[in-house]
């Protein structure tokens, strides 16, 4: 019978991380990239909680950190979406390739 162990969570987290990175690289839509960032942050949370649950040492640093990461992700999403809306008002698109007023 299969018992779920630390390794399963780590594989899940690594898979989510890779999906997030893939989304960040391939999406040209600013919101799409932000979704990739959120995926990576969720893989971070899975990591923290799994490591915490299967750790032999006392402590709950991991779970507390996961809470902080959730809050950070929410704050960042709020700021990022506002900034994207501002871009949309200016150039009528949130395609990051179309933002070419700056030649970086």
């Amino acid at each position: 019978m299969l018992t779920i162990g630390l390794m399963h969570y780590l594989v899940l987290s690594a898979a989510i991380f890779c999906c997030g990175i893939f989304v960040m690289i391939t999406k040209r839509n600013a919101i799409g990239i932000l979704i990739g960032v959120e995926l990576v942050l969720n893989s971070v949370n899975v990591n923290f909680i799994a490591f915490d649950r299967y750790s032999q040492q006392p402590g709950f640093d991991g779970q507390i950190t996961a809470l902080f990461v959730i809050v950070l992700a929410a704050a960042e999403a709020a700021v990022a979406v506002a900034i994207c809306m501002n871009l949309y008002k200016n150039i009528n698109t949130i395609d990051v390739d179309r933002g070419d007023a700056l030649h970086g």
Binding site: S13, F17, G20, M24, A30, I33, L34, G36, V37, V40, L41, S43, V44, N47, F48, F51, T65, V69, L72, E76, V79, A80, I83, C84, N86, L87, K89, N90, I91, I94, V96, G99, A101, L102, G104
Partner: peptide, 23 residues
């Protein structure tokens, strides 16, 4: 507007990856 979008996207990505390293 474009500058802040670039900043928030690069910043968000790098902080997310940094948090993965921390985890």
């Amino acid at each position: 507007a474009e500058a802040s979008v670039k900043y928030v996207i690069f910043g968000g990505v790098s902080v997310a990856i940094m948090l993965y390293g921390i985890s």
